[in-house]
């Protein structure tokens, strides 16, 4: 994703995001030299920080104070970071965002401890928020995230799955954390219940749209744009929406089987990606992403006019229309 363009969209939040960045550095500070190094390695890799942005913008619909809202924004990003470190062990990934992963630089066990450390710090951090319901939301989110990943592993290399299976999976894998970011931001700033509900749904729809675009980009982008080899998800055996739509086409099926068997040559991999790009799978997946985007924008429409509302609309539009 073009980070510069995205950052322009939330330039109003720059000083607050600087606070979050500093707090993240404090939160990952460890008495262990090794964990310190691994956590800093992750922090320096950067990231879009889109989840903290959703927390902050959602909080603007209530009594906004960066001093209290950081207690939600920081842990949400830590949870995201921790799950990426563990995902890299699961995917046996050597690079992420163009940098070596923790598991590649050290080993799987160090990656496990780094992720566990970040999860623990996240939970510790959010306990500053003395609202039982908020903790129920976050703990439920963490459990659902795991279930989403478990289902993803179960569904790997399984061509006999439906669009509904895919949508249920990405709901848990991605949408639920973005939805929780919006909901918790609004809860922490004591926004009214109706607003909280709209923001929660907005986050869910944006998350769905975002993940579908991510899955499209895995096929349509270049290695350089992705910071990892194009088609990685497919080679990992993850059947995504554009693939689901065209899996049975004559020009695609045999190559797809080769890829799912893990025996595809580089030449055939490129051919497979090219066939999927040419097919209508991409267009159809984009249509579904757009449908979720529309739903997200409809939720936002119900909220009172403000600059936060405008920012949320713009970010949703940008995320769903991005080219990489």
């Amino acid at each position: 994703m073009d980070k510069m363009k995205l950052k322009l969209l939330y330039s109003d939040l720059k000083s607050d995001l600087d606070v979050i960045e500093k707090e993240l550095a404090i939160a990952v500070n460890s008495s262990s030299h090794l964990l310190n190094e691994a956590s800093l390695h992750l922090l320096l890799a950067g990231g879009k920080r889109i989840r903290p942005v959703f927390v902050l913008l959602s909080a603007k619909f209530g009594n906004y104070s960066i001093e209290s809202i950081k207690n939600v924004a920081v842990p949400i990003e830590l949870i995201h970071m921790a799950s990426l470190v563990h995902d890299d062990v699961i995917d046996d990934a050597e690079t992420r965002r163009g940098r070596e992963t923790v598991k590649a630089q050290w080993n799987n066990r160090v990656a496990m401890y780094t992720g566990d450390f970040l999860f623990a710090r996240a939970i510790e951090y959010i306990t500053a928020l003395e609202n039982t319901y908020a903790h129920e939301v976050l703990s439920h989110t963490m459990v659902e995230l795991c279930i989403g990943e478990i289902i993803q592993i179960e569904d790997k290399r399984l061509l006999d799955q439906t669009v509904r299976d895919y949508l249920r999976r990405i709901k848990r894998k991605t949408a639920i954390l973005i939805s929780a970011s919006c909901e918790l931001g609004a809860i922490a700033s004591q926004a009214d219940e109706k607003t909280i509900r709209h923001l929660k749904r907005f986050g869910y729809y944006v998350g769905m749209s975002f993940q579908i675009i991510d899955d499209i980009l895995d096929i349509t982008s270049t290695d350089e744009q992705l910071g990892k080899p194009a088609g990685s998800d497919l080679l990992q055996g993850n059947i995504t929406l554009p693939v689901l739509y065209v899996k049975n086409e004559q020009s695609i099926y045999p190559l797809l089987m080769e890829a799912l068997d893990g025996e595809i040559s580089e030449e055939n991999k490129q051919k497979l990606l090219s066939e999927i790009r040419k097919s209508d799978g991409i267009t159809r997946a984009k249509q579904v992403s757009n449908m979720y985007l529309e739903k997200a924008l409809n939720e936002i429409k119900q909220l009172p006019a403000s600059s936060a509302k405008k920012s949320l609309q713009n970010i949703a539009l940008f995320m769903s229309k991005r080219k990489f």
Binding site: S83, H86, V89, I90, D92, N107, N108, R109, M112, G115, D116, F119, I123, H135, E136, L138, S139, H140, M142, V143, L145, C146, I147, E149, I150, I153
Partner: peptide, 28 residues
């Protein structure tokens, strides 16, 4: 129980998620 190197088998992948899942359940 996650191996230091090469944890790419299905059982090992799920071992990673098992720990996260149990941890989420304690919090919940």
């Amino acid at each position: 129980l996650v191996k230091e190197e090469n944890a790419s088998s299905k059982a090992q992948q799920l071992q990673v998620l098992a720990g996260d899942y149990y941890s989420g359940r304690y919090y919940q």
